[in-house]
Design a protein around this nucleic acid. Structure first.
Length: 638
RNA sequence: GGCUCCGUAGUUCAACUGGAUAGAAUGGCAGAUUUCGGCUCUGCUGGUUGGGGGUUCGAAUCCCUCCGGGGUCACCA
């Protein structure tokens, strides 16, 4: 328990006063776990006390060690290595710690904090299916929500669904033009994949049109006798001459190659397809019934598809927010802010937030034509959430680190508007995933589809388990469930064991490998413990014990289990499932070591046998509890 | 270019936020156990923590500088 550490801190301060008549602040006293290669359980670093003791580190440690051994009953021995004072704590104490763990319900979880936190994750666009990046996002958000719950907070899981905008219009246009009425039913495609297919189609056709248009411009330039004729020709192609950017002109003057001209953004904007998409966006905003119906229909396909993916992933949400419902509120808030002079307006009518008091640049909130930008909608969403849930004490946004700047700006704007919640917002920023052979780029088609990946991993888990597993007595449905439990468990664990802040390399082959620091390795340990307990029960062994001789391996395990509550606290503080994952791996390694070297069922002393069973059972419970915090299930057999 | 994050065994990651001889996994090599489930365990191998300077009892961690790599600086989402 932490009480031992607190007790030591107290006694160190007391000892320093007693020995040297010196006052030392609590913060100066550092207690840490003794490193493996030294003798002892807890270590005090004495360097900070040298000023007070006016003696060398060894002598100071020696004085303090003697004093504490004398005054703390649980301390049975101490030793000094340089400036480090190592204490050995009595076996009785550790045994007592274990007995408390064994009798605690939900061991490791903290009492209700009185706080409610909203955790946002996933937040997809509705124009294409989820990919590997979304997997990290979903697993991370879901796990952090669990960890915050374990820290005693109430948690509301949510997402913002980006259901409107030019991206979905692109899919809609392509479907209208090329879809021939295709539906998920008619094609057998999952809805999100179907809509994604037309998004890809749009971009493919768009590229063609860009090339065609560029070629026309080049031809026009070559045939035109003078500039006036050329511009007239451009206008016939749909360009308003005034809008043709300066660089297209200079490129035309200097370099007639397609490569040079094609880069100009005005070319893309003037293709037929982009004009159609822009028009559709305006029709959508105007509430055009045909467009709205198509929009609803295709979004619904996507939602149905996402639901299947969420189910496979094992994630869920308590409350959904849709951009189409919040962006107008965002506009209202900006209008209000303008009236209150929190924002300012430029001559062209656009509205801006002045952020010069921070290091950030000013940010546009409404365009000259009054339409909103992404930021506007995010302001609306944040305010709406606090209106809907006035009891909220904080909000966590699980969003990739490429949007760090965006969230800095968002939080600054909310603070400027004096929303009191602006100080309790947290951007849970995570690094990108790269593949062993390079980056995922949607343009180069190297994006890993989430559904495909999950299916592949489960299939591999199936092969692996059929070869080596213990499947006797399981029916077909139970087996299938086990395969997905192992496959997805491995995948989740692989993505969560790395510090979220860091980028990571995802190696599909390695995530299938079931050795080492992996989910299945931990799952296996759990299954083996359950098997052991079942066998013990069938042999009629009791788990009741009274007096036991605890060995060093058992003591190490208890020390690790003792850390679980503070590990949960740390993981919550840092929003980091990785801390839970690495802790669990350490615990499993320690247990496997014990399991391999110490007899359990063959132990002759029945007291020791019972204790070892009880210890194993509780290790199993901590493993299960910790894995569930990651969203990973553990089987009783595998 | 400005701002920002990062660089640790061959590889993938740790290091209690300034503490001891920088640890695991994987790979390679050598072994154990034939059972309480071999998806196990034990050794060995492998490092100038990108380079250089500084701060102090003590630096992978903090500061400066250089090298290398992300991200971001939109009237895109």
């Amino acid at each position: 328990m932490r009480t031992m550490e607190n007790k030591l801190i107290e006694k160190v301060i007391e000892g320093l006063t007693h020995l040297y008549d010196a006052k030392v602040d609590v913060k100066q006293v550092q207690i840490q776990k003794t490193r493996k290669d030294f003798e002892g359980d807890l270590t005090v670093v004495v360097f900070p006390f040298l000023r007070a003791s006016k003696k060398g580190p060894e002598q100071t440690a020696e004085d303090l060690g003697a004093y504490i051994k004398e005054n703390v009953a649980e301390v049975v021995a101490y030793n000094v290595v340089k400036g480090f004072l190592n204490f050995s704590i009595s076996k009785v104490y550790w045994l007592d710690v274990f007995n408390q763990i064994a009798t605690t319900e939900n061991y490791g979880f903290h009492a209700f904090s009185g706080k409610t936190i909203m955790v946002e994750y996933c937040s997809p666009n509705t124009n294409k299916p989820l990919h590997l990046g979304h997997l990290r996002n979903n697993f991370l958000g879901y796990s952090v929500a669990n960890i915050l719950k374990a820290n005693g907070h109430k948690v509301i899981k949510t997402q913002i669904i980006n259901d409107r905008g030019i991206h979905i219009c692109k899919s809609m246009i392509a479907w209208q033009k090329f879809g021939e009425g295709e539906t998920p039913e008619s094609s057998g495609l999952k809805g999100d994949h179907l809509v994604g297919k037309y998004y890809v189609r749009f971009n493919k056709e768009l590229k063609k049109q860009v090339v065609e248009l560029t070629e026309k411009i080049v031809a026009l330039k070559q045939s035109a006798e003078n500039r006036g004729v050329f511009y007239e020709g451009l206008e016939n192609l749909g360009f308003s001459a005034a809008n043709v950017k300066l660089d297209i002109k200079t490129a035309l003057d200097n370099d007639l190659s397609i490569d040079a001209i094609i880069k100009d953004p005005s070319i893309t904007l003037n293709t037929e397809l982009m004009r159609n998409a822009q028009k559709m966006l305006l029709d959508w905003e105007a509430g055009d019934e045909g467009v709205r119906n198509l929009w609803k229909k295709m979004n619904q396909w996507v939602y149905d598809g996402f639901d299947v993916s969420f189910k496979t992933m094992g994630v869920d949400f308590d409350e959904l927010y849709y951009e189409s419902n919040t962006y107008l509120l965002g506009k209202d808030i900006v209008a209000e802010g303008l009236a209150k002079k929190e924002f300012y307006q430029k001559e062209d009518g656009s509205v801006w937030a002045d952020l010069s008091h921070t290091k950030l640049d000013d940010k546009i909130l409404l365009r000259g034509d009054g339409t909103s930008v992404y930021m506007t909608q995010d302001i609306g969403t944040a305010v709406k959430r606090y209106n809907d849930y006035p009891q909220l004490n904080g909000m966590v946004y699980t969003v990739g680190n490429e949007q760090e700047h965006h969230f800095k700006v968002l939080f600054s704007i909310l603070k400027k508007c004096e929303y009191k919640f602006s100080d309790e917002l947290h951007h849970l920023s995570y690094g990108m995933i790269e593949l062993p052979d390079g980056k995922m780029k949607s343009r180069e088609g190297t994006v890993v589809d989430a559904d495909d990946l999950m299916e592949m991993i489960v299939a591999d888990a199936k092969t692996m388990t059929q070869e080596r597993g213990h499947l006797d007595g399981m029916n077909e449905a139970e087996r299938e469930e086990l395969y997905s439990l192992i496959g997805l468990g491995g995948l989740k664990y692989f993505l969560l064991k790395v510090d979220p802040k860091k980028g990571m390399i995802f190696n599909p082959a390695e995530s299938i490998d079931l050795n080492g620091n992996t989910g299945p390795f931990i799952q296996y340990a759990h299954a083996r413990i359950q098997s052991l307990l079942a066998k013990a029960e069938s042999l009629g062994f009791s788990k009741q014990y009274d007096v036991v001789e605890m060995n060093a391996k058992e003591q190490e395990i208890i020390k690790l289990m003792n850390d679980y509550p503070s590990v949960i606290k740390e993981a919550g503080k840092l929003y980091s499932p990785a801390i839970i994952a690495n802790y669990t791996f350490d615990l499993v390694k320690e247990f496997n070591n014990f399991y391999q070297t110490v007899d359990i069922l063959r132990e002759e002393n029945k007291q020791n046998l019972a204790f070892r069973l009880c210890l194993s059972e509780n290790v199993g419970e901590v493993i299960k509890s910790a894995m569930l915090l990651l969203g990973v299930n553990v089987p009783d057999k595998m």
